[in-house]
C-alpha cells in the first residue's frame, strides 16, 4: 500500500513535470525574437506567402489560443508536422527512436558492465593493481573525447581489422562500436562513483556488525555493502541513460547512424520549428520518464525513501 502510494505520487510528479516543461518550451520559443514564419519563408517571400506560413505554423492567432492548441495536441502526443518533410513530427521521432534507444541501452549496458565490477574491486582491494587500473581507466575515460574514440575504433575494427561494418544501421553489429564509444566515458563516471560509494559504505558501522556475525568477506561486500553503495550509482546511471536517450549527436554523426540526435541536428540546420519544438518536448518527456523509473528502482534499493 505504501509502495503503491509512493508510485502514484511519483507518477503525479512526472505528469506535472511534463506539463511545466512543455509550457516553458512553448513560451521560450515565443519569446525568442523574430517571426519563425519570416525565417521559413526567406527574404524574397511575399506577404501573402508569409501569412500562409503563419497559418500553417498556427502563429496567426493570439498566444493564449496557440497555447491551448499546443496543450490539446500535446496530450495526444501530436507535435505537429515537419516543415521540411511534411510528415508528422511524431512519425519522424518514432522512426528514429528505436535506433537511439538500442544504442543508449547497449552503451549504458557496456558502461555498467565495465564500471560496477571494476569499481567494487577497486574499493574492496584499495591501492591494489585493480585500483590503479581503475584510476587510469577513469582518467582516460573522462579525458578522451567520444568522437575521437569513435574514429579510432572505426579505423581499428572496421578498416584495419574489418570485424565490424563501417556503416549501416541494421544489426547489433553496427551498434557495437558506437556503443563502446558512448559507454567508455559513461563508465569512467560510474566507476569513480561506485568506488567512492563502496569505500564509504565499507567504513560504516553496520559492516562491523556483519564482520562480528562471522560473515564471509564476499557476503559483507556483495550482500551488505554493495546494495547500499549502489543507491547513488543508480541515480547517476539513470540520469546518464536519460541523456543518451535524447540522441548522441556526435557519435551518430561519426558512425553515420540515423538516430534522434541527427534528426534534431538537421531540424536545427533547416529551421524546422515544429520538429525542434517536438524534439525538445520529446527529450524532456523521455528524460522525466527515465527519472521516474530510476526513482522506482531507487525505492527498491533504499527502503527509507518509500516513507518520506
Amino acid at each position: 500500500m505504501k509502495l503503491f502510494l509512493f508510485i502514484l505520487k511519483r507518477f503525479f510528479r512526472l505528469v506535472l513535470t511534463i506539463l511545466i516543461i512543455s509550457t516553458i518550451i512553448f513560451f521560450v520559443i515565443r519569446v525568442i525574437p523574430g517571426d519563425p514564419a519570416l525565417v521559413v519563408a526567406g527574404i524574397d517571400a511575399s506577404n501573402a506567402e508569409i501569412q500562409a506560413i503563419r497559418v500553417k505554423l498556427g502563429t496567426d492567432v493570439p498566444v493564449a489560443v496557440q497555447y491551448v492548441r499546443w496543450m490539446k495536441k500535446l496530450v495526444r502526443f501530436d507535435f505537429g508536422t515537419s516543415l521540411i518533410s511534411n510528415q508528422p513530427v511524431m512519425t519522424l521521432i518514432k522512426q528514429r527512436f528505436p535506433l537511439t534507444f538500442s544504442l543508449a541501452l547497449l552503451g549504458i549496458f557496456l558502461g555498467i558492465l565495465i564500471a560496477i565490477p571494476l569499481g567494487v574491486l577497486s574499493a574492496v582491494h584499495r591501492w591494489s593493481l585493480w585500483d590503479y587500473f581503475g584510476m587510469v581507466y577513469s582518467q582516460l575515460g573522462m579525458a578522451i573525447p567520444s568522437f575521437w574514440l569513435g574514429i579510432i575504433l572505426l579505423l581499428l575494427f572496421s578498416v584495419k581489422f574489418p570485424i565490424f561494418p563501417l556503416f549501416g544501421s541494421g544489426s547489433i553489429k553496427n551498434l557495437f562500436l558506437p556503443a563502446i564509444a558512448l559507454g567508455f566515458a559513461r563508465a569512467a563516471v560510474i566507476l569513480r562513483l561506485t568506488r567512492a560509494s563502496m569505500v564509504d559504505e565499507l567504513s560504516k558501522e553496520y559492516i562491523i556488525t556483519a564482520r562480528a556475525k562471522g560473515l564471509t568477506e564476499k557476503m559483507i561486500h556483495y550482500k551488505h555493502a554493495l546494495k547500499n553503495a549502489l543507491i547513488p550509482v543508480v541515480t547517476v546511471t539513470g540520469i546518464q541513460f536519460g541523456y543518451m536517450l535524447g540522441g548522441a549527436i556526435i557519435i551518430e554523426q561519426v558512425f553515420s547512424l540515423p538516430g534522434l540526435g541527427r534528426l534534431f541536428l538537421f531540424a536545427i540546420y533547416q529551421r524546422d520549428f515544429p520538429l525542434i519544438q517536438g524534439g525538445v518536448v520529446f527529450i524532456a518527456v523521455i528524460f522525466s520518464f527515465t527519472n521516474f523509473l530510476v526513482d522506482m528502482f531507487y525505492s527498491f534499493l533504499n527502503p527509507k525513501i518509500r516513507i518520506s
Partner: peptide, 22 residues
C-alpha cells in the same frame, strides 16, 4: 571468522548505525 557470531557475539552502542539500513 567461524567463531565470530557462532561462539562469541557482540552487541554495539548505536543500533541505528550498526544495523544495515537496506
Amino acid at each position: 571468522r567461524k567463531i565470530r557470531g557462532m561462539k562469541i557475539a557482540m552487541v554495539f552502542q548505536e543500533p541505528a548505525k550498526y544495523l544495515n539500513p537496506t
